[in-house]
Design a protein around this nucleic acid. Structure first.
Lengths: 138, 138
DNA sequence: TAGTAGTCTATTTAATTAGTAGAGTATTAT
DNA sequence: ATAATACTCTACTAATTAAATAGACTACTA
C-alpha cells in the first residue's frame, strides 16, 4: 500500500492537473476540496516542488501549479518522490536498489518473481500520467 | 514495499517449497539458512499455519512443512496473509476494501489508474506460486 | 507598506513494525 | 514413564515511520 502521504500527494496532483493553465491554486483550496490536513499537505507540495514537479508563486494571488503539462509527469515519478521505491523488495528496485545479504540474485526465486512483478507495475505507472488522475466530472 | 516480515515469510516459504515432500523442517534451520531472527520467524510461520498454508509437527523430528504442493499456493495468497492488501490504495483493494471518504469512485481518476495497476500486479501474483520461489541452485 | 500566501524548522503524537523473552504444551525415542 | 525436543502462545520492548501541529520567516503584489 502507498502511504497516506503519497495518497494525499496523488489526490492533490490530480486536482492541480484539472486546474492546469488556470494559474496558481491555493493550498487551502486543495486541502479543502480533497480533505487533506493543510499543514501536512504543505510539506508534500513543497517536496514535489523541490523535485520539479510543481512550481509555486508567493504573495497575493499565489499558490501552487504544475511545473509542466499534466502529461509530462508520470505516476511512477510522483510516487517515487513521495513514497520511495515502487518495487516490492529492495533487491529489485531500480531507483532505490539495495543488495540482499542472504541471497544470490542470480539464483534467487523470489528475486525473479518480484522483478517480473515490478516490470508489469512499471509498465503502467511509467505510462500513466497526472493527466489520468483528472476526475471525469466535478 | 513489502514489510520486512513479509519478505521473511516469502523467503521461508521458498525454502520450505524446496524441501517439499522431505518431511518437517526445523524453524532453526530455516532461520539460519535465510538469516531471519528466529523468534520473529516463529510468529510468521504460525500465522501461515493458521491460514492453512503451512502445517507443523511437534516434538522430536518435528518442524514446519507446506500443507499443500508448492504450486497450490499463490504469491498473492501468501502476501495477503502476512502483509495484507496488495492494491496501492484501499478503495481498489479486492480483499481489504475501504471506501474513500472524499471521492466518488465512479469519477475518480486515481481510482481508475490504481485499479488498472492492481489488475496487472494480480495477474502475475495470482499465477506465480511458491514453486516459483525455489532457488535455481543451492 | 500592509496584507496575503508560500517556506522552513522543529516538535509532538500515534501507529506500525521489528525483535525479544520466557513459560507452556505436545510428541517421540528410549 | 520420562527426558529431550520442538512448536505454541502471551506479553513486552525498542525502533522506525507516519501523521499532524505550531510558529516564525520570507517573498510578492496591490
Amino acid at each position: 500500500m502507498l502511504s497516506k502521504k503519497t495518497q494525499y500527494g496523488l489526490k492533490a496532483l490530480g486536482y492541480l492537473a484539472s486546474r492546469y493553465g488556470q494559474g496558481p491554486v491555493l493550498i487551502s483550496e486543495i486541502a479543502k476540496k480533497k480533505k487533506i490536513p493543510i499543514k501536512f499537505l504543505e510539506s508534500i507540495l513543497l517536496q514535489l516542488k523541490n523535485k520539479g514537479v510543481l512550481d509555486s508563486k508567493k504573495g497575493k494571488g499565489g499558490g501552487y501549479f504544475l511545473a509542466n503539462s499534466p502529461k509530462k509527469t508520470t505516476l511512477a515519478a510522483a510516487i517515487r518522490i513521495v513514497d520511495g521505491p515502487i518495487a516490492m523488495i529492495p533487491c529489485v528496485s531500480l531507483n532505490f536498489y539495495q543488495k540482499c545479504k542472504d541471497c544470490d540474485e542470480a539464483t534467487c526465486g523470489l528475486n525473479k518473481a518480484m522483478a517480473y512483478t515490478r516490470d508489469a507495475t512499471l509498465k503502467i505507472l511509467e505510462k500513466k500520467t497526472l493527466y489520468d488522475l483528472i476526475d471525469t466530472e466535478g
